[in-house]
C-alpha cells in the first residue's frame, strides 16, 4: 500500500481527485441554494406584480444608505476572498491568513450594519407582527396588508441571506485557524476554494436582493 497524502480520504485516488469532487459538491449544493432563494423570489414576484403600490411604498421606507454601503462592503469581501483563494493556491500562508481575516471582518461588518438597520426598522414600526402601524399606512392611502407582504418578504429574504453569511463567517473562522497553522498547501487548498465559491454565491444573492427590495421605485432620499 503506497503512503497516502495527508488529508486524502480512502475512497479517492488522489488529492486532485478529491479536490475536484469537493468543488463539484459545492456547485451542486449551490444549485440547491438557488432554489431556496428561487422560491422566495417567486412568492415576492407574485405579490409585487399584484400590489405594486404597496411594494413601492414599503421599499421607500428601507434605508438605502445602509443597503448601499453594505453592497460595497460585501463586494469588497468578494475581492478579498478571491485573493485569498489565489494566495492559498500559491502557498503564501501569511497573505492567506490576512486576506481571510479581511473577508471575515467585512462579512461581520455587513451583519453589524444589517443589525443596525433592523433595529431602525423596528423603531420605525416596520416589523409586521411585532411592531407595525396599520393606521399610519392607511393615512398615506396605502393598503397596509400590501406593505406588510412586502416587509415579510424583506425580512425572510434578508434574514435567510444573513443566516448564510453567518454560516460563511463561521466556516471562514475555522479556515483562518487552519491556515494560520499551515494546514493549506498549493497541493491541498480545495477547502479554501470551495468555501470561496460559497462566499461569492452569497454575495451574488445580495446583488439580487438590493434591487428587489431597495430599488423598487424612484426615491427622493436614501433613508
Amino acid at each position: 500500500m503506497p503512503v497516502r497524502d495527508r488529508g486524502l480520504w480512502h475512497h479517492f485516488d488522489s488529492l486532485d481527485h478529491q479536490a475536484d469532487s469537493n468543488l463539484l459538491g459545492m456547485w451542486v449544493f449551490l444549485a440547491t441554494e438557488l432554489l431556496v432563494f428561487g422560491a422566495l423570489f417567486t412568492g415576492y414576484s407574485a405579490y409585487r406584480w399584484r400590489y405594486p403600490a404597496g411594494f413601492e411604498a414599503g421599499s421607500r421606507h428601507l434605508n438605502l444608505l445602509i443597503g448601499g454601503v453594505n453592497t460595497v462592503v460585501l463586494l469588497t469581501s468578494s475581492l478579498t476572498m478571491a485573493l485569498a483563494v489565489r494566495a492559498a493556491s500559491q502557498g503564501r500562508q501569511a497573505l492567506l491568513v490576512r486576506l481571510l481575516l479581511a473577508t471575515l471582518f467585512l462579512g461581520s461588518a455587513f451583519l453589524g450594519l444589517k443589525a443596525v438597520e433592523y433595529r431602525q426598522d423596528y423603531l420605525e414600526r416596520l416589523v409586521p407582527g411585532l411592531a407595525f402601524d396599520r393606521g399610519a399606512w392607511q393615512e398615506l392611502h396605502v393598503n397596509p396588508n400590501h406593505v406588510q407582504l412586502f416587509l415579510i418578504f424583506y425580512y425572510v429574504m434578508t434574514g435567510i441571506h444573513a443566516l448564510h453569511l453567518t454560516i460563511g463567517i463561521g466556516v471562514l473562522g475555522i479556515l483562518t485557524l487552519k491556515a494560520s497553522r499551515g494546514h493549506f498547501t498549493p497541493q491541498y487548498s480545495a477547502p479554501v476554494e470551495m468555501w470561496g465559491l460559497y462566499w461569492h454565491f452569497v454575495d451574488i444573492i445580495w446583488l439580487f436582493l438590493l434591487p428587489l427590495l431597495y430599488l423598487v421605485s424612484t426615491r427622493t432620499s436614501f433613508y
Binding site: 444549485a31 441554494e33 432554489l35 431556496v36 422560491a39 422566495l40 407582527g129 415579510i152 425572510v156
Partner: peptide, 17 residues
C-alpha cells in the same frame, strides 16, 4: 431532491411565520 426540496423548506418557513 436537490431542486425541489428547498422550495418546500422555504414554503414551510413562510407558513411558520
Amino acid at each position: 431532491m436537490l431542486l425541489a426540496t428547498p422550495v418546500l423548506a422555504m414554503l414551510f418557513v413562510l407558513l411558520a411565520i
